[in-house]
Write a protein that binds this DNA or RNA. Sequence first.
DNA 1: CGGCCCTTCTGTATCGATCCAGAAGTCTTC
DNA 2: GAAGACTTCTGGATCGATACAGAAGGGCCG
Lengths: 356, 356
Amino acid sequence: MRPTLQTVADAVGVSRSTVSNAYSNPDQLSAELREKIFEVARKIGYPGPNPAARSLRRGRAGAIGVLFTDSLPYAFTDPYAVQYLRGVSEAAERYDSGLLLVPLAGDEKAGIHAVQNAAVDGFCIYCVPEWHWATDAIRSRGLPIVTSEQHDDDRPDVLYVGIDERGAARAAAAHLVALGHRQVAFLSDYVVPERITAPVHIASPEEVRYYTAGERLRGFRDAFAEAGVAWADITVLSAAANSREDGARAAAYALDRADRPTAILAVTDLLALGVLDALAVRGLRPGRDVSVTGFDDIPEAGAAGLTTIRQDPIERGRRSGELLLDPPDDPASRRVLLPTELVVRASTGPAPHGWS
Amino acid sequence: MRPTLQTVADAVGVSRSTVSNAYSNPDQLSAELREKIFEVARKIGYPGPNPAARSLRRGRAGAIGVLFTDSLPYAFTDPYAVQYLRGVSEAAERYDSGLLLVPLAGDEKAGIHAVQNAAVDGFCIYCVPEWHWATDAIRSRGLPIVTSEQHDDDRPDVLYVGIDERGAARAAAAHLVALGHRQVAFLSDYVVPERITAPVHIASPEEVRYYTAGERLRGFRDAFAEAGVAWADITVLSAAANSREDGARAAAYALDRADRPTAILAVTDLLALGVLDALAVRGLRPGRDVSVTGFDDIPEAGAAGLTTIRQDPIERGRRSGELLLDPPDDPASRRVLLPTELVVRASTGPAPHGWS
DNA sequence: CGGCCCTTCTGTATCGATCCAGAAGTCTTC
DNA sequence: GAAGACTTCTGGATCGATACAGAAGGGCCG
């Protein structure tokens, strides 16, 4: 028979409430009594208040749910995702909460089941499309959600932490425009539903259903459109996954052509690093023969001299967690926009003569 | 007012128990009634049984706790750890449980607090020394633990999933002995408490307090001792962390000497890959000028042609999770020893003449 | 047709804590 | 010295589900 609050209370000779207060409301009883209670609890082997009972009574689960599409290993290969998770875990710690991972690896039915049974106070969803079935499952539980995707039709109950994806991407592209680049390629994952690594034709970035990729491509497009470069004259490369390897494979399609672009704009650093790999294999010099930009500023980007857009994933995770556990009453502050910064490094330079 | 089982029961006109059975014991009521209950529940907006209440009543938290020392990001840089986690999550899914991460990032007090409040049915501890304070905190809660460390004095309540660390390491070393290597260096993290990257002097591997590193070094020692190589004649290199960079830095101390070793045995693949990097920088050929062995067989090891000991981290994680959630009555099967295999690749070859 | 089993559903007790109104005792204060 | 304020502790109600014993009804068999 496991000891409970009552067991301890009886042993000390006080009421159950007092023992509870010893653990949860120290200012409600004298320090000596509190010490005495702890001592007896230790002797009896009472492990402290049962988390399930506490959750039930308090109406708080004491954990943040984090949704992952695809497999866990895939998620962890993305350094940005890992940093984000770290930020969320910092917020969780501050609010005395845990971090419950909910992988959506199996089929839809299993995933919905997992979401419905998770003992959490809300979900931080990351890299999960807004229209994903899992978000409906969360909504139907009435739990708050923090997304990283901005929507016009967002209801007031949806929390948001993100960046101005489109504006930031536009800044990166404007930098290349200023350097004289006019013949360019855009590289992105999630461009088309098929998830292939190949050049693809899409009528406009508005066709891209995946939020982050779509917004960034729109930003790229905006800057070049302003400089008079038509969408039809831009090569769009699709990568099957957000990985260095797929970035390199996709870049090959553009680099091995006679009219190779003078610059390649990738929607993530991982893809951009792949482009650098592809350049190295061909003996092409980044920033001279071909300029390359990334997005995120992961640690490897600095080492590789990659021009990119810096954003702070830890801060993003932290703010997400905080917003979830302690939502402000003011509707305006339920949507947080974090700053970004263009970091110019050696991978971008003036467009080579004769090409532009 | 949020709807509960009772709300639904009243709306349908049945008892609370029947609604509960609809969700949890489908064979206890007719299919038509079950459908009707679900339909009404959907209409009312009942999100399904409250996880906290269910946990309390069932006496099962429905989650596996995973303890991480250090920071989350550090843990996720280790590909082996990520694979392990994936295995645990597979087991969790099978038993309808979640995965609660408990990072021990903060100070000890915060960590103990986190462990005590985690709503879990037990912990899988990985890369956490057996004597760590956190394990005491778990024990005092009376929760089961799955460790990966073998101990003579283990109590029967401790579950174990691991490999024959010492025997496997011995096999790798024996392979090098057979190739004629006699002048060697061992490379490991956690050798000395100071966590430095430098050659260190220790009287014997028995001094190493960290289980995995200690056992593997003992295995290396065993094989070379049998071949007549004294411990005093072996260089021990300490790496500050289990990373490629520290592996390369540590290897430099052995490679830049006149009497450089003909082989370097690392206790992890990550460190061994660092050694290969150090060789490359110096124009030394792995498997010809210097042989290198690793441990774990992470994916990168295959690509790099690294001779190593293969073990299956996913399987290890899965078995750990299964053992935790469904411990067998038979004490013997509460300790699982997984197989390992020596994988010989290009990074090892005969000892060069004139050195051995 | 009575007895028995089987399916389907009900009612009560219970899991282990927290909340809150209030009681008892102590200390100020006029 | 009585009223009021403050500290410290108590008891009962409650959070939302599940377990289990048992009741009601229908079908089968001898």
